[in-house]
Design a protein around this nucleic acid. Sequence first.
DNA 1: ATGACTTATGGCACACTGTGACAGAAAGGT
DNA 2: ACCTTTCTGTCACAGTGTGCCATAAGTCAT
Lengths: 202, 202
Amino acid sequence: MGLRERKKEKTRLAILDAALDLFLEQGYESTTVEQIAGAVEISPRTFFRYFTGKDHLVLLFHDHAEDLMLEALASRPADEPPFTCLMQAMRAVLADLQAATPEDAARFLKLRRLLDEHPRLVGLSVARGARTEQHLAEVIAARRGVDPAQDQLTHLIVAWAMSTMRVGFECPRREGTFEEVQHRMAESIALAERSLRPGWDL
Amino acid sequence: MGLRERKKEKTRLAILDAALDLFLEQGYESTTVEQIAGAVEISPRTFFRYFTGKDHLVLLFHDHAEDLMLEALASRPADEPPFTCLMQAMRAVLADLQAATPEDAARFLKLRRLLDEHPRLVGLSVARGARTEQHLAEVIAARRGVDPAQDQLTHLIVAWAMSTMRVGFECPRREGTFEEVQHRMAESIALAERSLRPGWDL
DNA sequence: ATGACTTATGGCACACTGTGACAGAAAGGT
DNA sequence: ACCTTTCTGTCACAGTGTGCCATAAGTCAT
């Protein structure tokens, strides 16, 4: 890996960290791109070369999580029920989180606090989730051998799975360690499985 | 009702209709507020007094639907299971749609086509849905006698209900009459009820 | 009607986001 | 050293959204 790419990655993270701190300090909306750029000594124009906009900073985790889920999904046995499959994909995201560096862990917790304090960002987050949902629906439709444009059950399976995750991640909004997040998530999955009729997703 | 309010309502609808047509003609992003304002002979500044922004135009239906659902929810018997309740609230939205004027019906169908063609707007729509979900969660928590900040099941019930609605409304994306929307919705509800264990939401 | 009031509108200036175009700086390979 | 490729900053620009203030329109007395 050349100096160029290492430097880019460094700037990337510097921007992210500066932005998260500024957002938490003075609020999301009241933080300007100019301020973020100033904090890491780059021009505002360069900021937009690293990220598509302020929103993108908040959605980095979602991008990563989506990759992980699609990857995890691909590695599950073909005969595993779709919903079970999706819950496993979710666990893969959790596992990745646990294996993360302390820096990444801190970023995740900051992001979580940020979402707590800014309902608008929760909106952004679920909107991004809708895109993930589309991608997952295509994979699940293929698994089930149906046309994603026709089959409602496929969309219901994916939508409910994403909802289950979201509830696990979001609720409750207080400060939380990874252990607590993981516990909430497990609780959420258990709740879901207890509520569904066995074989509903076949 | 005075002349003032009637005139305001007229401009309001004129803006909405002009905007929807422009969006469908030349795309959402490439339509400017200036164009919309020009089409109804008002200043751009006035546009922002009627609507908070371009987004708001797309979310008018969601605002209305949320009102209807909260209203419907309030009128349901206290001992009705939460999920059933929410499905009834959803039916209230459908009923309102059927009772709508031809103008409103046309607006709804245009909005639907618009969402079809613009994934970004689907994101907006889902984000708005998250806000509705919060409000519904509070009502359902009260019904169930639990603290919305603590109870995951409440959030799961509401999230799954919203997902069920969304799947009913969105899928599939082709042109549809109200009959088709209603049919899809009924199908979605049936699918949901078939998939859930009786009494899961108590 | 006339006048006094309340409210809606338009115009202006402004801050902010995001993008295209171009010139110069930095890193890569030879 | 050289040339090539890629990154960066500067400038210009279009668009969104908001505060501010003067003016026009509507409302409601007498």
